[in-house]
Amino acid sequence: MAEKNDRKETLFYPDFMFKEAIAALIVVIAVVAISLALPMKVGDPADPSDSSFKPKPEWYFMAPFYLLKVFSSSFEVIPTVIGPLATFIFLLILPFADKNPEMHPRKRKLAMSLMGGGVLLTILFTVLGILA
């Protein structure tokens, strides 16, 4: 038994660590390449008396931002507070709520479809927000 474990560990290290180092190298090269290809610019200085500027958040905040337009004022708390908070709490309690001991995705239909649905919706709203 102990022998078996040891063999698996050697598999992980250094073999896996080597993969990790290669991945790290690729990512660093990619980041530097993007950074050189797309240098930074600056916009116009902030002007509180300007009325032509359309605010746009970073793409990863696009989903709640997009939903602001969909929900009318009385239900606005849904995208602004309730949605993000509910997502956060859902993620936090996930390991305690999901008692299903199965690890394989095919045997966790409920969890997989819940998460899949959430991810798809988020991607959908993000894309709609960017296109709008």
Binding site: D44, P45, A46, P48, F53, K54, P57, E58, L68
Partner: peptide, 15 residues
């Protein structure tokens, strides 16, 4: 502190 920053953050903090 450019236009993009100012207006996006304004919407964000008022949410």
């Amino acid at each position: 502190w450019d236009q993009k920053a100012y207006w996006a953050t304004k919407v964000g903090v008022l949410m």
